[in-house]
Design a protein around this nucleic acid. Structure first.
Lengths: 263, 263
DNA sequence: CGATAAATTGAGACCTTTCAAATGGGGTGG
DNA sequence: CCACCCCATTTGAAAGGTCTCAATTTATCG
């Protein structure tokens, strides 16, 4: 096992994972070809390229950073699934949101010096790394990109608002419907899969922690939903997801988000 | 009764409330004197002044904007309490966060064209109004202010993350402790009152909707907390709030936020 | 093919909710 | 200044959704 592999499988890192200089060039970023991401000037893409200090790989189940740490980096997810979370002193955990490719993470940590939440990988994760210190430079040199950063922040907040509505006011059945609906919708938009076949690396414990439920009750509720044929779950993949009915179950009226910037 | 008074007491406005041109000048804004707000260059303050198109007053219990509307404005709260909320088709409501003086609201609505949440006044509200269309100009002309906008957005998200942790993983007793703690801390920082005496315009139904509880259970839980002498509540004011013990009850370890920008 | 983690299933306890109804406070009209 | 009304707060009692504890079965991984 080489050094790099060690850093990839490290679940409890004393230091941060090594940055790999060999990296995809922003102009060729496969994400940028997706239509969920709005077009961007060549000049801006080139500027973003100058900010990119490399890439980091984190193994499935690995920790990117913990609550209270001061991560030196800001990342955009290139591929893989992850989640942001907070915990209580006795260990109870709340998953704040699921992070997918194209999502910008670490903004709060950047602004507050101390991350108010942790970030953990669900699958192997490939992250684009930006140096922490240069964020303000971005705003100065390219106001449009600064505006985009704000946009992405507002979008993330809107997603959390939705989750808060679920956790606070929806029943377990409704919450779960809403979560599956949103996740599959996002996955489809990102080309990760289809409603008929979508990779789903979350464990029932993750779902429970995201919805404020116990793992056991999550299990029973998923059973209900499957029996109702709202989706099927085999191994780590979701099949035959009935988006329209999930939407109705959850009381969701707007389908979701439009295009967004990619930084 | 004049036209202005009518617009103030309108609870169900077909149009938006009238903008009052007579307004406090930003340089003399009383909020700016508080030490929670970071110092700002005279030049920037003057620029913000040029963005300010007036002020709006909303009566207690009045609606500022609803879910799905397209508010033409962006506001900073000058005085008063309000809350952001979302609802489900059958009327269940989740309060997302409590809005206090200095908070910037409507950013999401601005970015998404359609507000994903509503905003309602708890007390009489005085809002500083910025025109919707000029937000990007701000980023271009004053990158530092754009950066501040992002900061405020990230701060709000961090607050919602905390609430999500409460609603998802804290017991009713813990959630309520956390809520009172945060609200009183914020109120003290803003000079709205002290731990010994703080105005508290929320109804138990509001608290219930913010914490995902029923109003009845909220009532019983508040009774417990009062019996434990963590605070007293007479009319619309909170007295003798025991911040340290509330913090411990809620499992909160960091006291909160530092200074922040005022826009 | 063991070893460990995840998913299930059963059963009873418990926190919260719902349904009902009483009490209290504040505002309004007389 | 008082009667009356509406809304928020309380309190009681029972139903119910979720949780915890335990144990079993089924995947996953080296």
């Amino acid at each position: 096992m080489g050094v790099d592999d060690a850093s990839m499988t490290e679940t409890n890192p004393v230091r941060q994972a090594a940055i790999h200089p060999a990296a995809i060039r922003c102009a060729e970023c496969p994400l940028r070809r997706l239509k969920v991401f709005s077009a961007m000037d060549r000049e801006q893409v080139d500027f973003i390229q100058t900010l990119k200090s490399g890439e980091v790989f984190v193994a499935a189940r690995g920790t990117v950073f913990r609550e209270g740490e001061t991560p030196e980096r800001l990342h955009t997810v290139l591929s893989g699934w992850a989640f942001r979370y907070k915990t209580l002193p006795d260990g109870r955990r709340q998953i704040l949101n699921i992070v997918l490719p194209g999502d910008l993470v670490g903004l709060q940590a950047k602004l507050f010096d101390e991350a108010p939440h942790g970030l953990e990988a669900l699958t192997e994760l490939r992250l684009c790394v930006f140096s922490r210190a240069r964020l303000f430079d971005v705003f100065r040199a390219h106001p449009a990109i600064g505006y985009d950063v704000t946009w992405l922040g507002a979008r993330e907040e809107a997603m959390i608002d939705e989750t808060l509505l679920s956790v606070g006011r929806r029943s377990a059945l409704e919450s779960l419907s809403a979560m599956i609906f949103r996740l599959v919708s996002r996955g489809v938009a990102l080309g990760l899969g289809t409603a008929a076949n979508m990779p789903f690396p979350l464990t029932q414990t993750h779902i429970a922690d995201a919805l404020g439920l116990s793992a056991i009750h999550t299990n029973r509720t998923m059973g209900d939903l499957r029996r109702k044929r709202l989706f099927a779950l085999s191994g780590q993949t979701l099949r035959d997801v009935d988006l329209p009915r999930l939407m109705e179950m959850a009381g969701i009226t707007e389908s979701g988000f439009d295009t967004r910037p990619l930084i």
